[in-house]
Structure formats: C-alpha cells, structure tokens
C-alpha cells in the first residue's frame, strides 16, 4: 500500500462518518422536541456536512481520478461507504440520538486535538477548523446525557437503554488496519490507543455524573469500515442519493 492510498482511505473514513451522521441528524429538522433543540441538532448536522465536504474534497484530490466531493458523497454503492456502524443507526428517541452523538463527539474531540499536529498540512488544517465545532458538540451532548441520566426515573431508564444498545458499536471507533499503521508511522495520524484513553476517561466521567452504567456485556459489532453495513444504511442512502440518481449532474 502506498502512502497516498492509505491517506485516501483515512480521509474517506473520516469524511463518511461526518457525512452519514450529518444526514441522520438532518432527519430531526422540524421534529426536534423543542424549538431550541431542533435548531441545535440541525446546526450540528450542518457542521458535520461541512466537515464532510472538506474531507471528501481532500479525498478526491488525493485520489486524483476525476471524481469530486459530490461524486464521492452521492454516487457510491453501499459497500463503498466506510463509515462506522454507530453513525448510521436510527435516530430513535431523543435520548438515543444524544447518546449516539455523545459517544461519537467524545471520540472526535481528542482525534481532532491530536490530528491538528499532523505532518499532513491539509489534514491538520481540517482538524483545527473542525475542533472548534466538535468541542461545542461534545459539550452539548454531554450536558444532555447528564441531565437525561440524572433526570427523572423515565429519562434515566430510557437513556440507560440507549447506552446499552449503542455501546456495542463503540469498539469500531478505534478500528485500525494497515492504512492506519502506515500513516501512524509517518506521523500523519495520531495513535488510536491514545485517543481511546482520552475517550474512555471522558465517557466514564460523564456516565458517572449521569448515574449510567456501561453494559457488562461487551460483545461488539463491526463491519462499517469494511463496507458491511446494517440494514438501516440502504434507506439512508436512498434518501441521500435520490436527487443525484434521479437527475444526474443536477446542481443547486
């Protein structure tokens, strides 16, 4: 594997995580539990789609094969998307959405903090810009997890169920293969075990404050990074891709 192939894989993975979670959050538009939260969730969605645009543009540049960010975002088949399974999971109730967001944000913040010192200038710049947004996303989702967990009996029970269901998708946050090993050696990407340390400390502290229990059963799903997605992915892509498939090359 060449450095460029590894860099393309890595950039595409980060871009796909942002794109698919951004698309999921956009489904809340007009359906938020309160007006303030409706705006907050769609703000976060737009931040993620902005990050996806930067990352997929860069992936297209690295690939150098006559594709742009739009082609990459809208015209791939399901198996060619390499986002983790966590981000494609259904929105569920508000607690499910906030739990998915918290588990993701708690990973993204240390990732961008370390990635901003990458030897790859473009990735470093994208990380620096995205970090400011991600810090706020994490604050927002943490505050909600604490209030839902340490709230009423019903909110506690429901968000505990969200944690129990979504915990199975968290190992994949730290998925690595030969691309990551190569880029790690070149000091282009940070060490995943260091990110995991920060992530674990952060989620443990927030769950303690929220009086939530990390499930004892640690059986984990994986497959998204390799293009093996859950049944929800096809429906998400149908909605995401509809306009480009129905009206090829349309612009707006």
């Amino acid at each position: 594997m060449t450095k460029n192939e590894a860099l393309f894989n890595y950039t595409l993975r980060l871009g796909d995580d942002s794109l698919i979670l951004g698309q999921r959050l956009a489904e809340w538009c007009g359906h938020g539990p309160i007006l303030e939260e409706d705006i907050a969730i769609t703000n976060i969605s737009l931040d993620l789609i902005g990050q996806a645009t930067n990352l997929l543009n860069y992936a297209a540049l690295i690939e150098n094969k006559d594709r742009n960010a739009d082609n990459i975002a809208f015209l791939r088949l399901e198996k060619e998307y390499c986002n983790i399974l966590l981000v494609e999971q259904l929105n569920g109730d508000f607690g499910d959405t906030m739990m998915r967001q918290f588990l993701f944000d708690a990973f993204r913040k240390p990732l961008f903090e370390m990635l901003q010192f990458s030897k790859d200038k473009q990735l470093a710049a994208i990380a620096e810009k995205s970090l400011k947004e991600t810090k706020y996303h994490l604050k927002h989702s943490s505050e909600w997890i604490i209030r839902l967990g340490d709230g009423t009996e019903e909110s506690h029970q429901r968000v505990q169920n969200s944690l129990t269901n979504l915990w199975r998708y968290t190992d994949e946050l730290f998925f690595t293969d030969e691309s990551d090993t190569l880029l790690g050696e070149l000091e282009i990407i940070p060490d995943f075990s260091k990110i995991k340390e920060v992530w674990s400390a952060n989620v443990t502290a927030v769950f303690e404050q929220a009086t939530l229990q990390i499930p004892a059963n640690n059986w984990q799903f994986e497959g998204g990074r390799k293009g093996r997605h859950s049944e929800h992915m096809g429906y998400l892509l149908a909605e995401l891709q509809y306009m480009q498939r129905a009206y090829p090359n349309m612009e707006w």
Partner: peptide
Amino acid sequence: SLRAADAEMAVENARDVYTR
C-alpha cells in the same frame, strides 16, 4: 426569551437560537 431546564442549558440554547 426561551425555555430551558437550567441556566447552563439556557446559555447553550441561546447560543444556538440567537448567535448562529
């Protein structure tokens, strides 16, 4: 004005609603 469970959430909501 807006509704929020407590002061901290009110600041966050205000950030999202009034400073975007």
